[in-house]
């Protein structure tokens, strides 16, 4: 009994989706959105991020380790479910099912996303507007981005809704409905920002 740390790990998994991953998502989307104002603004923003102090420590501690933990433990959690959406077509069961589907798709997207941006950067490629523009010039890659962005915004927004339940913040019907409204607004706003940003790279 004493050595059972399930509660701790599950709660850590839940909060890690917001802090630091959700916070990173907001920063990342904000930086991306600067592409809407032109290549030069985007390059300035990217250079600013690249010149932050303790960059590697922050990348590892705030981005890579939390993402790997959330992703791998998330797949372990998703494997526990026997999805039954065909027999129980209820609204929240759809959210539940899609949370697991989107989680796995985001994981695959991120492997590709890191592989096509950070890995070349590690070998000396410069992270700038042209790098992304040349990627999305390929319609297949643009499609990957659109799906990846929507899966990410869904997973985060619905995850935020369920996190409010998981931490006992939204308990009754009224507050859980309110949580859903917040989730829908997050999804619309984040999707709008993310898609506007990626289309800014399409010439």
């Amino acid at each position: 009994m004493k050595s059972d740390r399930t509660f701790f790990w599950r709660k850590l998994h839940s909060i890690s989706g917001l802090i630091p991953i959700g916070v990173f998502l907001f920063v990342h989307f904000a930086i991306n959105y600067t592409a809407f104002y032109g290549a030069e603004t985007y390059n300035q923003a990217a250079a600013m991020m690249g010149s932050l102090p303790f960059r590697y420590a922050m990348e590892i501690g705030i981005i890579f380790i939390p993402l790997l933990f959330h992703g791998i433990y998330g797949i372990y959690i998703a494997r526990e479910a026997k999805n039954n959406i065909s027999a129980y077509k209820y609204e929240k069961n759809w959210y539940f099912y899609f949370q697991r589907v989107s989680g796995i798709l985001v994981f695959l997207f991120l492997v590709w996303h890191v592989g096509t941006t950070r890995i070349p950067a590690a070998f000396g490629a410069e992270v700038n507007f042209d790098m992304v523009a040349s990627l999305v010039a390929n319609p297949v890659y643009l499609f990957f981005y659109i799906v990846g962005i929507l899966m990410t915004t869904y997973h985060f927004s619905n995850g935020f809704r369920t996190m409010l339940i998981t931490w006992g913040i939204t308990v009754n019907r009224k507050s859980q409905n309110f949580g859903k409204v917040i989730g829908v607004i997050l999804f619309i706003v984040l999707s709008g920002i993310g898609l506007t940003a990626i289309f800014a790279f399409v010439s």
């Binding site: 059972d4 509660f7 709660k11 129980y88 209820y90 929240k92 069961n93 959210y95 369920t162 339940i165």
Partner: peptide
């Protein structure tokens, strides 16, 4: 608060339905 306890709930909401 152990394995298989409350943290195994995934909020599908089917139970109440």
């Amino acid at each position: 608060m152990i394995e298989g306890g409350i943290t195994s709930c995934g909020n599908s909401g089917n139970c109440a339905e």
